[in-house]
Amino acid sequence: MKQEAPNPVDDETLHAWVDGRLDAAGRERMRALLQADPALAATVDAWSQQRDALRGLHASLATEAPPAAMVQAARALGERRQRAVDWQRWGGMAASVVIAFAVGWLGHGQWRGWNDRQAAALARSQGPVEFGRQAVVAHVVYTPEVRHPVEVEAAQQEHLVQWLSKRLGRPLKVPMLGEQGYELVGGRLLPGDKGARAQFMYQNAAGERLTLYIGAIDDGASRASGETAFRFTSEAGVASFYWVDRGFGYAMTGKLPRQRLLTLSEAAYRQL
């Protein structure tokens, strides 16, 4: 076993020398030290040789073409970011429109079925409004997806429901909208303020898509009263009805006339 003599310099300086991280003055001092101390010089030489050998290790991988799966994953990284960018852009736009809408709504005193106390509580929490906004953003971001509109397809419906239920921490049901002409495409999991959100996507024969967005929501007023009220928002042709039921928010969103969307929302509400 080798006995390393006590060094006149600290290890950090020795490593910095070997790794080429000393400044000119430091290098000068080291050169003088190494000349005076052959044992130290031998250690440092050995470390330098080691470093060179390590830098040559598996060098062929540096020029070898990477496996296709890795290249694909790297490309997906670029796409993923693009989606986040879209999200921010749409999020900002949707937020301004929804807030403007909410302000107008409050101003006209059009709170259907809501007394002042509940309106005040809602204005404080902004929970449901924020939820409706997020549902619109999620709709706008994912419905144009051609290849991956959903994470889990309707064919695996049982798995889909189990998975989303587990992630949302409550048993979910997928409303069937076949009578209204919409078939389930599948679902995906999304992040939300208070845990996960689920998005179910539906499509009709014309390829028009509809989303149902579900997640926990902080809305003290409706939880206390157990009351559910449909609220409506629309932006650039994308309309959404959202409601809160026992601490969970639901939003039905699509490019549809208000009355048609309301019919679909009621159909979903009855099944949930």
């Binding site: 991988l61 290249v71 490309r75």
Partner: peptide
């Protein structure tokens, strides 16, 4: 990112 792959693999 594709350019980092050789480094990551090595």
């Amino acid at each position: 990112v594709v350019g980092f792959i050789p480094d990551l693999r090595r």
